[in-house]
Amino acid sequence: MDGPAIELRGLGHRYNGDPVLRDLDLTIEHGEIFGFLGHNGAGKTTTVNILTTLIEPTSGRAAVNGHDVVAERSLVTADIGYLPSEVRMYPHMTGAENLTFFAELSGVSNPKRAAAETLEYLGCADLADRRLGTFSTGMRQRIGIAQAIVHRPDVLFLDEPTAGLDPVGIRQLRETIIRLNRDLGMTVFMNTHQLSEVAKVCTTIGVLSRGELIYKDSMEETTRRFPNETSLEDIYVRMEGVPT
């Protein structure tokens, strides 16, 4: 692995001429669990879309494990896993069939075995033979995580992973993220609105406002810098209100 897990330099993006990201600089080291905060439309998902090679930036550079997301797309996609905000995989196919398919697309040598092992690792082997159309939101989220890690990526991108989950589902997801980071050494980049989860899971946070990064630091340093705020929510509101 060359360079940091994620590196953005002067990253910019426009949709129909409107700037969504402005000159974004960000570095995330290996092994971090990074919480990317920001209000709706701040540009969080656009950043993830660029990092997962779904769209190309209109200016600047983005790299994962030192590989440029545009020029070295195939190297980047080999290193990343991605869970979008709404997980809708093939409803007519079973959990195992879906995972096998996505393992094949990632070039895994034994896709069926990788799918079975991943389901086992996540403790959801019972979902293997059931069609996704019958899954609850929580089940879909678990199978979504499974597809994101079936090829054992170095960097995992999660876009609003707690959306639609009940408290039990949120707790399970939190434990899974910590386990993936601890056991498999995955760097996690998480877009979220769930500030309480960020406080419990993330090692580093960044705040995006109107396409600009207005804050980035470790959770430890963040709570030290804002001693008078009782929660991350208070800190976030203060940051959004007073851009630095």
Binding site: Y82, P84, Y90, F102, L105, F157
Partner: peptide
């Protein structure tokens, strides 16, 4: 259409394909 409506393109094209 299923890939399009369900946003599966995001999962597919974040891979090597």
């Amino acid at each position: 259409a299923d890939d399009e409506a369900d946003g599966l393109g995001r999962l597919i094209f974040s891979r090597k394909v």
